[in-house]
Write a protein that binds this DNA or RNA. Structure first.
Lengths: 124, 124
DNA sequence: GTGGGGCCTGACACCGGTGTGAGGTTCAAG
DNA sequence: CTTGAACCTCACACCGGTGTCAGGCCCCAC
C-alpha cells in the first residue's frame, strides 16, 4: 500500500512514517517511480513502533528491538540474548524511576495547592 | 550576593540563573557596573523554582505562580484566586495522567520482556 | 594602576519526533 | 494527452532548559 493509506490506517502522519524509515524502522519497497510500497504487515509494525515510542524508547533502541519481534503480535521472532533483555530491563527501571519522580512532583504540587488555597483571593 | 555565590549556594549553574531572570523568575538589582546583585532570599527562591521545575511546570507557569508564594517557605503571600488553584489542579491532573501513561508503558515493556526472554538466544 | 578572577552579553548546539513548505515527479482516471 | 491528486526529496522550525564558547567589561586586593 502507499504511504497515504498507511498513514490513514495507523493514524500516524506521512512525515513520521518517512522518519521511521530514515531511522531504519521501516524498509518499504519502491515502485519504478520511487513511491514507497508497504506490505500489509506494515500496519501492525507501525502500531508496534508507536507502542514502543509511547513506552519512552528512542528510535535507536526500537531499531535494535524490532528485528526480535514478530510484526503481528509482538512475540519473539527469535530468542533474545541476555544483553537485549538486560537493555529492556534497564528501560523498565528507567520508567519506574520516572514514575517515582512524578509521585514526588505530585506531592510537591499538592503542597503548593494546599498552601495557596487558604487565603482570601488576592493573587491571580 | 553575586551570581557566582548564588550558583554555589543553590547548586544551579550561572547560565540557568541568568535564564531564570530572562524568564522573569528572578529580578536581581544591578551594581553600577552592571553586575547582578541578589538578596539573601534569592537562595530560597531559586530552590523553590527548582522544586517547581522538578514538578514539571514550565517557566511561564512558574512565573505566574511565584508572586503568590513566600520565598522562604512557599506559603501563600496572598490567597490564591479560584483561577490559580484551578491551574494548579490542572497541572496535578497532568502529572497524574503522566503517571498512568507510564504505568501502561511499563506494562507494555513487561510484555515485551516476557515475550523476548523465552527463546534460545539468537537475537542481539 | 594593574593583574587576574569574576562577571557581562550574545549566540549557537543539543535532543528527537513532528509540522510545514517549496519545488519537482509520478500515477491513474478521464 | 491531460489533469489533478498523491507522492518525492530537501530543508528549516519547534520546544525548553542547559552547556559552552567568544569577546569584552568590572572589581578588588595588591
Amino acid at each position: 500500500m502507499r504511504i497515504g493509506e498507511l498513514a490513514r490506517r495507523t493514524g500516524v502522519s506521512e512525515r513520521s512514517l518517512r522518519y521511521y524509515e530514515e531511522q531504519g524502522l521501516l524498509a518499504p519497497a519502491r515502485t519504478a517511480g520511487g513511491h514507497r510500497d508497504y506490505p500489509g504487515a506494515a500496519v501492525d509494525r507501525v502500531l508496534r513502533i508507536q507502542e514502543l515510542y509511547a513506552a519512552g524508547l528512542g528510535s535507536r533502541r526500537i531499531a535494535g528491538l524490532l528485528p526480535c519481534m514478530r510484526d503481528d503480535d509482538g512475540g519473539p521472532s527469535a530468542g533474545a540474548t541476555a544483553r537485549l533483555t538486560e537493555t529492556l530491563r534497564a528501560e523498565r527501571d528507567r520508567i519506574d524511576r520516572s514514575i517515582r519522580d512524578l509521585h514526588v512532583s505530585r506531592d510537591v504540587l499538592d503542597g503548593v495547592i494546599d498552601a495557596a488555597s487558604g487565603g482570601p483571593g488576592d493573587c491571580p
